[in-house]
Amino acid sequence: MITPAQIRAARAMLDLTIDRLSQESGINALLILQIESGNGYEATPGDHAMLRQTLERLGILFLDSGQAGPGGAGLRLVAADHQEGMRPEELNSANND
């Protein structure tokens, strides 16, 4: 199960508000606050799983203790697909958005 610190760190890495995480996950914002503070006694394992799935979908990779060398549980951003965009010679008034 993911830890409260991992959830807080994931939100910070994604610059995600509690309200936005609530919208994305379908979990009440107050319950997310309680989980993050370690007082989510009413949270079910399904709530934790939904938060994890939502954060993974948004670009977080959760690491178990010792998974990436010595240390405790953690997380990292998933590498984004590199998109070069348009080359300068392709820019013109027709594609100026």
Results as ranks from 00 to 15, higher is better:
residue 1 M to D: 06
residue 2 I to Y: 03
residue 2 I to S: 03
residue 4 P to I: 07
residue 4 P to F: 07
residue 5 A to H: 09
residue 5 A to L: 14
residue 7 I to N: 11
residue 8 R to S: 11
residue 9 A to D: 11
residue 10 A to V: 02
residue 10 A to P: 09
residue 12 A to N: 12
residue 12 A to M: 11
residue 12 A to Y: 11
residue 13 M to D: 08
residue 13 M to P: 00
residue 13 M to S: 10
residue 14 L to W: 08
residue 14 L to V: 12
residue 16 L to V: 10
residue 16 L to Y: 13
residue 16 L to P: 07
residue 16 L to W: 10
residue 17 T to S: 15
residue 18 I to F: 02
residue 18 I to S: 04
residue 19 D to W: 04
residue 19 D to Q: 11
residue 20 R to P: 03
residue 21 L to N: 02
residue 22 S to M: 07
residue 23 Q to N: 09
residue 24 E to D: 15
residue 24 E to W: 05
residue 26 G to L: 06
residue 27 I to D: 03
residue 27 I to L: 14
residue 27 I to Q: 02
residue 28 N to A: 14
residue 28 N to D: 15
residue 29 A to T: 12
residue 31 L to K: 15
residue 32 I to L: 11
residue 33 L to V: 10
residue 34 Q to P: 00
residue 34 Q to S: 10
residue 34 Q to R: 15
residue 35 I to R: 04
residue 36 E to N: 09
residue 36 E to I: 05
residue 36 E to V: 07
residue 36 E to Y: 13
residue 39 N to G: 12
residue 39 N to Y: 13
residue 40 G to D: 06
residue 41 Y to P: 00
residue 41 Y to L: 13
residue 41 Y to N: 13
residue 41 Y to R: 14
residue 41 Y to M: 10
residue 42 E to I: 10
residue 43 A to I: 09
residue 45 P to R: 12
residue 46 G to V: 05
residue 46 G to T: 05
residue 47 D to T: 11
residue 47 D to P: 03
residue 47 D to R: 03
residue 48 H to N: 04
residue 49 A to P: 03
residue 49 A to L: 15
residue 51 L to H: 04
residue 52 R to V: 00
residue 52 R to P: 01
residue 52 R to Y: 01
residue 53 Q to S: 14
residue 53 Q to D: 14
residue 53 Q to V: 06
residue 54 T to H: 06
residue 54 T to P: 08
residue 55 L to M: 10
residue 55 L to G: 03
residue 56 E to Y: 05
residue 57 R to A: 12
residue 58 L to S: 03
residue 58 L to E: 10
residue 60 I to G: 00
residue 61 L to R: 11
residue 61 L to G: 01
residue 61 L to S: 06
residue 63 L to W: 00
residue 63 L to K: 00
residue 63 L to P: 00
residue 63 L to N: 01
residue 64 D to L: 05
residue 64 D to H: 04
residue 67 Q to A: 15
residue 69 G to P: 00
residue 69 G to K: 01
residue 69 G to Y: 02
residue 70 P to V: 05
residue 70 P to E: 07
residue 71 G to L: 11
residue 72 G to W: 00
residue 73 A to Q: 07
residue 73 A to Y: 00
residue 73 A to D: 08
residue 75 L to R: 00
residue 75 L to M: 05
residue 76 R to W: 00
residue 76 R to Q: 09
residue 77 L to D: 02
residue 78 V to Y: 00
residue 78 V to M: 09
residue 78 V to S: 02
residue 79 A to C: 05
residue 79 A to E: 14
residue 79 A to I: 05
residue 81 D to H: 04
residue 82 H to L: 12
residue 82 H to Q: 11
residue 83 Q to K: 08
residue 83 Q to F: 06
residue 83 Q to Y: 01
residue 83 Q to H: 05
residue 84 E to G: 12
residue 85 G to H: 08
residue 86 M to F: 13
residue 87 R to L: 15
residue 87 R to Y: 12
residue 87 R to Q: 15
residue 88 P to D: 07
residue 90 E to W: 09
residue 91 L to A: 13
residue 92 N to G: 13
residue 94 A to C: 05
residue 94 A to R: 13
residue 95 N to E: 06
residue 96 N to T: 12
residue 96 N to P: 01
residue 97 D to F: 12
residue 97 D to N: 15
